[in-house]
């Protein structure tokens, strides 16, 4: 079978489906019963801390997420106007 699929250059799709579901459900189950998603919490608190120091325009905040099996990525891009010397805050590679 694997010979045939490699011959026709077509992988079966069910293993992809299984992997995707396992990753998704692991995250969703972890966020059930009152526990909030760790990434969502981090995102919320990181923004809170930053807002304490500078006023952030919500339009200038971009949040990207990629929930993986071993590692999840939370990427927060904040455009900071007229800030002297400080780079844009960014958090990534939080598992």
């Amino acid at each position: 079978m694997s010979f045939l699929t490699s011959l026709f250059g077509r992988k079966t799709s069910a293993p992809v489906a299984r992997d995707r579901l396992q990753i998704l459900l692991a995250h969703e189950r972890a966020t059930g019963e009152g526990q909030s998603d760790l990434l969502a919490k981090l995102h919320e608190e990181i923004l809170e801390v930053i807002k304490r120091h500078i006023s952030v325009d919500q339009d200038k905040v971009q949040v990207k997420m990629d929930r993986g099996a071993g590692v999840s990525m939370l990427e927060i891009d904040i455009e900071v106007p007229e800030l002297k010397g400080k780079p844009v805050a960014e958090a990534g590679g939080l598992s």
Binding site: R20, I23, L24, A40, H43, Q58, D59, V61, Q62, V63, K64, M65, D66, R67, G68
Partner: peptide
Amino acid sequence: ERRVVFDLINVVQGDAKLAQ
């Protein structure tokens, strides 16, 4: 599914901007 941060209800309730 792995990239969802905010959703329709967050936008409806004003917790997030549409673009986010």
